[in-house]
Nucleic acid binder design. Sequence first.
DNA 1: CTAAAATCCTGGTGGC
DNA 2: TGCCACCAGGATTTTA
Length: 273
Amino acid sequence: MPMPELPEVETIVNGLRGPLIGRTFTGVCVGWENIVARPTVLEFQRRIRGQQILGIRRRGKYLIFDLSGGDSLFIHLKMTGQLTIRPGDAPPDKYGHTVFDLDDGRQLRFLDMRKFGRIYLVADENEVAGSLGPEPLADDFTLSQFAALIGKRKGALKPLLLNQQFIAGIGNIYADEALFVAGIHPQRKANTLTGEEIAWLYQAIRQVLHQALADEGTTFDGAYRKADGGEGGHQENLRVFRRKGQPCPRCGSAIERIVVGGRGTHFCPHCQK
DNA sequence: CTAAAATCCTGGTGGC
DNA sequence: TGCCACCAGGATTTTA
């Protein structure tokens, strides 16, 4: 299953800016009420109407639409969410649970087979984004900051990298990939890393995310799609994720899959200590 | 405080 | 072939 993570969300945001910035929402149809986390569906529909899209950005795995009325529209795609722009008279999509009408006659459609995705409309963006950890690709995310954060943690590294309050935007794919590149076992306790290992991990996180961004994300089973419907290319460059039993790209040992913190975790038993 | 487990969903998988 | 129990997976909530 595809879980849009930082590189995928960033790629989608880049593709939505052209067609959407300057457009105004003229209405929204909600086919599955649980998708709208905040406010109530009725208030959501009332408040979004007439607001113009001034900008679109990413924070962690959230897409954020900055609206003219001062509200921020947050969309989290979770597992299977997709965004697509279609003509208003195009046939309905099978999983199109939320459809935004635009002032140019087109629609922004939020498709989500598993219905895990969530939408928030808030006046204060900290209501949703306030507890997120640092952005791993930001200039001000430094090795010394990362080292200070990781030294305080006692738990296993894999769940820590997935913790959005610790660091924002990393999901199952890039956690496994970064730990492999760093040569560190996913079950290592964070506070047992040497200074050298912390530096390797810091570099690995940034390198893996940059490479995936250059590849426009990872598409599995067609579930993550770019704004134009195209697929990413990073699935061709994965080192361990979803490669159980296949040879490690570094040493040739069989990649193993275990469960850590309730999540499927892929690693090389020879290269990762 | 941390950690584990339940929760939400449904297409895909594997067993019989 | 058909039926069905079970699984994955992010983030939140609950429980220990």
